[in-house]
């Protein structure tokens, strides 16, 4: 009796199971495993000795974990270490220069595309964007000849110049989006307040577009750091190679050294992953800007 009245006053509503939510959870778990397990296996392999890695069935967990593979790669007194560190430096140097030059060239262009309406603007903008569409291979042969003609084969200059062009379209597009969002009244106010056009740009607009510049910089840097095809074709001298290409030499020279290769792969990924994690906000914004407007 009391039970029924209680139910009547405060009916216990059985909340239906939200199947969609559960499906989402299961799906995310699957995706997480799909994403993380290969990376985990890379790291696990990198702390195994070569003997431990080459077993069937595999050692699921390394019996005797060792950091030897990393020590070897980072030891400047050994040949492997010397090579690896040089590749690492080359990659860093090329990526950094590409990034800086890219910003210097992209900023004024993006600003002009955002603010000015000059004849040919649309055509140029189209041309710049369309660069993104072309596979590296189409440009490989002629660029190889061009670089040979300019005496840039086997120099980092050839890579920087090439990377610049495939970074530029995206940088210009992204920065243009940022400039579009900076009200033109700010510049007008500055010009009335006594600034020239250039001053208005440098003192008012540039500081406001810092997030955009950071975002595009991450993109150029990661793009240059990861690039393979041009580096593979343009560079044949050992001391010039960048990491993605250099690492392949490890692979062929030490064909069976999987733990060493996994360690090298891990070290190669560290800078971009760290950069991505630190500047994630900008990265995601750069990725989605333009495609998701309004």
């Amino acid at each position: 009796m009391t039970d029924t009245t209680a139910t009547r006053i405060r009916p216990v509503v059985k909340k239906p199971v939200d199947w969609w939510r559960w499906a989402g959870r299961v799906f995310l778990t699957f995706l997480l495993l799909f994403t993380v397990l290969p990376m985990a296996w890379m790291i696990l392999t990198s702390v195994k000795s070569q003997f431990a890695a080459m077993q069937y069935p595999p050692q699921w967990w390394p019996a005797e974990p060792t950091l030897n593979n990393y020590f070897k790669l980072l030891d400047p007194t050994q040949r492997i270490g010397q090579d690896f560190l040089r590749y690492f430096w080359n990659s860093f140097y090329v990526s950094l220069l590409t990034t800086i030059l890219g910003v210097v060239v992209a900023v004024p262009a993006a600003y002009a595309f955002s603010r000015f309406r000059f004849p040919g603007r649309n055509f140029m903008f189209f041309a710049v964007l369309v660069r993104n569409m072309f596979p590296a291979v189409v440009f490989l042969m002629p660029l190889f000849l061009l670089m040979r003609w300019m005496g840039l084969v086997n120099t980092h200059g050839s890579l920087i110049l090439t990377y610049l062009t495939f970074g530029l379209p995206l940088s210009i597009w992204l920065l243009k989006g940022f400039y579009d969002n900076i009200p033109i009244q700010l510049e007008q106010a500055a010009r009335i307040d006594g600034a020239t056009r250039l001053q208005a740009f440098l003192l008012i607009v540039m500081p406001l577009s810092t997030p955009g510049i950071i975002a595009t910089s991450i993109f150029s840097f990661i793009g240059a750091w990861n690039e393979y095809v041009y580096a593979y074709t343009f560079l044949s001298r050992d001391d010039q190679m960048t990491l993605p290409v250099g690492i392949q030499r490890f692979f062929t020279e030490f064909a069976t050294d999987w733990p060493g290769l996994m360690a090298a792969t891990f070290l190669m990924s560290v800078p971009v992953v760290v950069m991505f994690l630190v500047l994630q906000k900008y990265f995601v914004r750069a990725l989605t800007e333009g495609a998701v407007k309004h």
Binding site: P183, Q185, L186, Q188, A189, L208
Partner: peptide, 8 residues
């Protein structure tokens, strides 16, 4: 200006 155009 209408939107004040203060330098943010």
């Amino acid at each position: 200006f209408q939107n004040y155009a203060l330098y943010p």
